[in-house]
Design a protein around this nucleic acid. Structure first.
Lengths: 191, 191
DNA sequence: ACTTTTGCCTAACACTTGTTAGGGTACATG
DNA sequence: CATGTACCCTAACAAGTGTTAGGCAAAAGT
């Protein structure tokens, strides 16, 4: 059951990294959270960097898969963007701590992995951009500044992990709904 | 000229903290950037925490002053919000690195200062909320979810420091203009 | 000329960091 | 009973941390 224990450690690391940051979290603190000594962690993980990579790419891959699915299945641009936002919000709300790590701590990845990560992120950004493009072609979105629109949408979505409270009244699909509405009336052509 | 040298150190610290994070930056690295030994820094600063406090509250106070000014002078809610966004964007673009520290590194402040910081941030958030309130009273903004609107606006504005490039084509007032437009057509009642 | 101040240095402190080596105990399998 | 293995330990390492003490040389002030 090495994998199971490893997963527990990663979950605990998410909490610590999200709260104190990657560098601000020591292996001894993390071990203490698990009721272990620091050295014992190394039965289950390769290194501290290993933890960060796992967390960052776990969220990254979830997002990439989600956007790929959307761009494969849904045709209408509005539907696509709504679906993409919904997926993104749900991924963040299902993994709020990991998402904070994904957003804030990726820069501490080893150089090679950092490059790989940035490529993944650009790929996702490209996925969103394609949806906007479709909307412009369909003439339901105003063409003004594509990149600006994408960045603003992504910032709003990414920031959710900063304030989202699983115990709060606002549920993920409600958040997605509101956010999409907000974004749309800012993008849609109103004759 | 102790103050002048201190300011140079703080500027350099901004770069390092923005890039490597507060904990990821050592005093020896910072000193090396300045062409000094670590111990020499302490002629000009009290401690490492001192640096972080200075940076965080410098930006924080700029923002607070800006919102106070807006809420004192401008009457129309749309004008107020446009002005508030413009001020915020300009503060961020004038101090992109310090702004990144303000957004990402405040959690490493000492407990007392952290509380003070959060109060300041809430105060700013309150300032924006008041503008939205005015707009609702003036019946030019849709009342849906105030707090959600405020959070989305703030996330979009704060994220600017993540991608803003002083050498890029997009100038601060252009960014403010676009962002305000984006926000408005999402808030304004279009009958 | 002498004194003070400025601006930096080296050395050291006490402690924390990620990680490895090697061992020991409890339990399952033969 | 013997063997293996799952699970965790202590001890230690080499390196890096923020910070203080005390000193030395050049410049400035008198």
């Amino acid at each position: 059951m090495v994998d199971r224990r490893r997963q527990q450690i990663i979950e605990m690391a998410c909490k610590r990294f999200a709260d104190k940051g990657f560098i601000g979290s020591s292996m001894r603190d993390l071990a203490a959270d698990m009721g272990l000594e620091a050295a014992s962690l190394y039965t289950y993980i390769k290194s501290k960097d290993d933890l960060l990579e796992d967390i960052c790419f776990s969220i990254g891959n979830k997002l990439i898969n989600a956007i790929a699915e959307v761009n494969d299945i849904y045709f209408n641009a509005e539907e696509k963007l709504r679906m993409a936002i919904k997926n993104h919000v749900e991924i963040i709300c299902a993994n709020p701590q990991a998402s904070k790590v994904f957003t804030h701590e990726w820069r501490h990845l080893q150089e090679a992995k950092k490059t790989e990560f940035i490529t993944l992120r650009n790929q996702y950004e490209q996925g969103i951009t394609e949806i906007i493009d479709t909307g412009i072609t369909e003439q339901i979105f105003i063409e003004d500044d594509k990149r600006f629109a994408v960045l603003t949408i992504l910032s709003a979505v990414n920031w959710i992990s900063e304030w989202y409270n699983p115990q709060g009244k606002m549920k993920p699909n409600e958040i997605a709904q509101k956010l999409a509405d907000f974004v749309f009336t800012g993008l849609k052509k109103t004759i």
